[in-house]
Write a protein that binds this DNA or RNA. Sequence first.
DNA 1: CTCGTTTCTAACCAATCGTTTAGATATTGG
DNA 2: CCAATATCTAAACGATTGGTTAGAAACGAG
Lengths: 192, 192
Amino acid sequence: MPRKKSYEDNDVIEKATELFWRNGYQNTSMSLLESTMGINKFSIYASFGSKQGVFIASLQAYRTLHSTAIIKLKQSNQGLMAIKTFFYDCLDIYHDTDCSKGCLMSNTRAQLNNHKETKILAEIQSFVDYQRQLFIDKLLEHGLDQSTAVKQANYLIITKQSISAASKVHPIEQVHDYIEFTFNAISATHTH
Amino acid sequence: MPRKKSYEDNDVIEKATELFWRNGYQNTSMSLLESTMGINKFSIYASFGSKQGVFIASLQAYRTLHSTAIIKLKQSNQGLMAIKTFFYDCLDIYHDTDCSKGCLMSNTRAQLNNHKETKILAEIQSFVDYQRQLFIDKLLEHGLDQSTAVKQANYLIITKQSISAASKVHPIEQVHDYIEFTFNAISATHTH
DNA sequence: CTCGTTTCTAACCAATCGTTTAGATATTGG
DNA sequence: CCAATATCTAAACGATTGGTTAGAAACGAG
């Protein structure tokens, strides 16, 4: 009976994700979303409820975009070295045609000091916690005891965020140096 | 002949700095600046020209606020360990009554993906470059060769930024763990 | 006191923000 | 072909953004 939708939610969210990723949440206006998603404000609100609704859908889309690298890490049996590979895979995800956009989750956490946007922060926290557990699993495989594995996982979570931030302002070789140095240093603490 | 100013630039900028530090550049509006600085919009524009003008003055105020820790690092002869102490001193600067505000420079760099605000970015870059050179000097004192010192200084610059970011979202003990682990790891690479 | 100069108050500016709504436009079962 | 229902366009919403301005108020040299 009713009229048909002229767009697919997944398609327009993909474009919104790109926009949020490049510009950040606050620097992305509804009118910019309109023109980039190719649909009217009315349709955006009909499908996603609010600007925050669009953003949360974008965060989820980003997460699935990220899942290939995550699965690869999950299935690897290389222990610590799998995490290093994971970091390089992430760098590939961050990289755009000319520069690095960083990690959408890390960017958002850095840009949102507003503690009121709890839904968004919860979405990010879930992503971070999932990765932390993954790191712990890999470090246990690598032969560390539980307590050390947790501490190093915390260290690696912070490191991953700093890789995202660094990739946006430093030349890629410096970021590579950073990763190499980090894992050399970690290995050195294991063998002494 | 003329009427006297009823405020001191330094005083009102101190309050503006606090505000930018907590809220970030974009989340601080002119009306909020008005009420916090205790002067009218007219006076703000008369003294600082624009919102960006206020912010740049705030960045400079932040830098002098930071200078005690910098001078202490500069005058130390403890090499690498002086840098570690410097990081802890920075943490103290970031810390507020209840939480950590992070580093105003790092916060801003993370929040500004707008490449148009060149004046602001230049101000930040100058601060970063100064610290990088300081790190290089300390690492040379510590006995490293020039090339290694430069690479490790780059590493430490990234680390410092990640300490700022981490302090805003992780419990302080985790950040302490992060610093301890980092310097243990660096020391381990020196003694292999 | 008066005049010239500056700072102050307070209203106002256009532009944009996220969000809503009225009405035209499709679509399809009956 | 019509009536029901959903989606579309486009204009408008109040609030807030960074920035401006006219006129009152305060000062100090003459």
